[in-house]
Nucleic acid binder design. Structure first.
Lengths: 374, 374
DNA sequence: GTGAAAGCGCTAACAT
DNA sequence: ATGTTAGCGCTTTCAC
């Protein structure tokens, strides 16, 4: 018993087109009273538009596809949330697909999304060229966000890893460190290259020698950080600070330093990168730079919307800056540290205040829930 | 220049209906050769079906809605992944919406999803009755998964918190512990109630007295675990083991025990609950029980599919069991511990092997990428 | 076994 | 300012 505009037309004693015009707030000239009348009738009948039918006519679904590596990866959910928060006011929904790094799955996904007539696609954490797949896009716009290799391409959004690394290095130098070691990620990653460059350039800017033996390569994991730091701690001239290119390796470095009988930050200071959730509640809490996932999500959504609406084909790549989060492990906050809850990314924290208020309201309502459901 | 079945019909010299029948593998009787011919022509023309148009006719979109509290919450992504992995072979896509615990947002979301003619909805981590909202569902099936309060309702999937707590308590008793303390979550949560019951029943089953002073209430966060354990450590008769109702509180307990100058697990053993990612790489690595998110996702997807296809209205609630993950903090693995990577939930690990293989293949391809994109 | 035709619910020319 | 009509691309009854 779904009510259609035909029903409304009959009930209101007008034509289909008038109903359509009223409901869509069309700029076609129209009598204010009939419009009000139609709206009232639609409301009384409990009209719900069939967006499928509308989309079939208008060639716009207000749905985008988000193709991610794996929704369980740590950086993906905040990126998605940024996208969705930006897209929601514009009336867009999003369909999320995991590619598991598989070009075939990715190609199939693109095709399926196209068959569903989506308005555009955001690729999150991909790297390959998807050339075959993208050709099937039949002219729909698409955007890359946090592309892990060769990040700089048109219509893409990526983190300012170079700037973030300079932030960290500068912070350590200001704290008086001159012997700063660097534990990098695998060499072929853009993030590794850019963070290394930032580290080096900032040392140069302060006229500090870059010593190759102070730079080790890890694997992005705790273990790699541990092994690298173990070597650093055995150097004749000990580094006074270690900058790890991500938080997991920073944690590994912390362990290696502790196992060597040294204290953090007094013996060796440690800084990480990414602002993973655990950095706020491990001991010592780890100073780091945010990987601005939420903000990258927002930026990519904005970019896609521009592409959909304006038809500008090629935009400059967009670089999003991270923010230094000073905790215990760098030594800048001696004795001042308190536990930090496990509450997600930084731009998100702003939004969260509001949500927390609603949550507690809702909670009190739930407490009086009689236990039956529905 | 999109090609439609009309095009195909012309090119193949047959009627629309034949094309449709051929493409849909209809069971309508049909000449094998014409079918083959049509399929060939469709393929040559690069035909892509317009699923919107099909759905408008068939009243089935092969799309479901997933309404989550917040996609950034730790347990949500693995649940989503479980849902999507189960739904994918059946050809379903999913649209994800954040409700931020707000009943109004939830109601709006349900309405929007209905307007888009989705086939069903999975509610993830909700609790309120959504009564107004659900009435707008116009008969579409829906399922609750990991409902946080009053979990047991028809067509719902929830974790076996009771059984998990018994698993932990039994494990500790077998390790020789008799004085086992419990740090619970806030009292009004189902998870708190059920985990407490499991703890108590397992003690009773081993004829161990339940001492009220051994049970403290926390806030699910590191800080609450810390404060609760601080009190426990000051008791005249020290507990030899502390079971915290989640991993964050277990970590807080670890800190409190360490701050009291005791060792883990020799002085006091600690066990958590949930199997959060950090439990594998903090020191000591925390023994815990998995919250079976991925599996709950799968179960809820299966349930929804049954609801969509069979029209059975009310199914028994489904309880999903967790699994004990023995690490360092309980003392069962002295000296055997190695770093554990940050790699997500347990059922997921199985699937991951395959994916990792594809990743490395893909990586080598990426390494030879010339840097241009698209 | 094949084709003609109706219509899913809606929008947008094109009339009036 | 309102109404009539022709589709969007597809499935499915109904006729032959």
């Amino acid at each position: 018993m779904t009510v259609t505009i035909t029903e409304i037309a009959k009930a209101a004693g007008v034509s289909l087109s008038s109903v359509s015009r009223a409901l869509n707030n069309s700029d076609h000239p129209m009598n204010m009273e009939t419009r009000q009348h139609i709206l009232r009738v639609a409301n009384e009948l409990g009209y719900q538009p069939n967006l499928l039918a509308r989309s079939l006519r208008t060639d716009r679904t207000y749905t985008i596809g988000i193709i991610v590596e794996n929704i369980q990866s740590p950086f993906i959910p905040p990126i998605i949330r940024g996208i969705q928060d930006f897209l929601k006011p514009a009336g867009y929904f999003s369909t999320i697909i995991n590619s598991d790094w598989d070009p075939h799955i990715e190609a199939d996904s693109i095709q399926s999304l196209n068959n569903r007539q989506i308005d555009g696609i955001i690729f999150v954490e991909t790297w390959h060229r998807s050339s075959n797949a993208v050709q099937k896009m039949t002219g729909k716009p698409f955007v890359f966000v946090h592309r892990l290799f060769n990040a700089r391409c048109p219509n893409s959004v990526f983190p300012d890893d170079y700037g973030g690394a300079r932030l960290v290095t500068n912070h350590l130098i200001r704290l008086g460190h001159h012997r700063i070691a660097f534990i990098n990620g695998p060499k072929d990653w853009d993030a590794s290259r850019n963070r290394l460059r930032g580290y080096q350039d900032e040392l140069l800017a302060s006229s500090i020698n870059i010593e190759p033996r102070m730079v080790k390569t890890g694997d992005w994991e705790v273990k790699g950080g541990y092994l690298a730091a173990q070597k650093l701690v055995k150097l004749k001239k000990l580094p006074t600070a270690i900058f790890a290119a991500n938080d997991l390796m920073a944690l590994g470095a912390v362990y290696a330093i502790q196992d060597a009988g040294l204290h953090i930050p007094q013996g060796v200071a440690v800084v990480g990168y990414d602002n993973r959730n655990f950095t706020g509640f491990v001991r010592p809490a780890i100073t780091t730079v945010t990987l601005p996932c939420y903000e990258m999500g927002e930026a990519s959504a904005k970019l896609l919307l521009d592409l959909i609406n304006d038809g500008v084909k090629e935009n400059e790549p967009i670089e999003v800056k991270g923010e230094l989060i000073v905790r215990e492990s760098c030594g800048a906050n001696p004795g001042k540290w308190q536990f930090e809850d496990d509450k997600g990314s930084s731009a998100w924290r702003e939004k969260r205040k509001d949500i927390l208020r609603r949550w507690s309201e809702s909670r009190s309502r739930a407490a009086t829930n009689d236990g039956t459901c529905l």
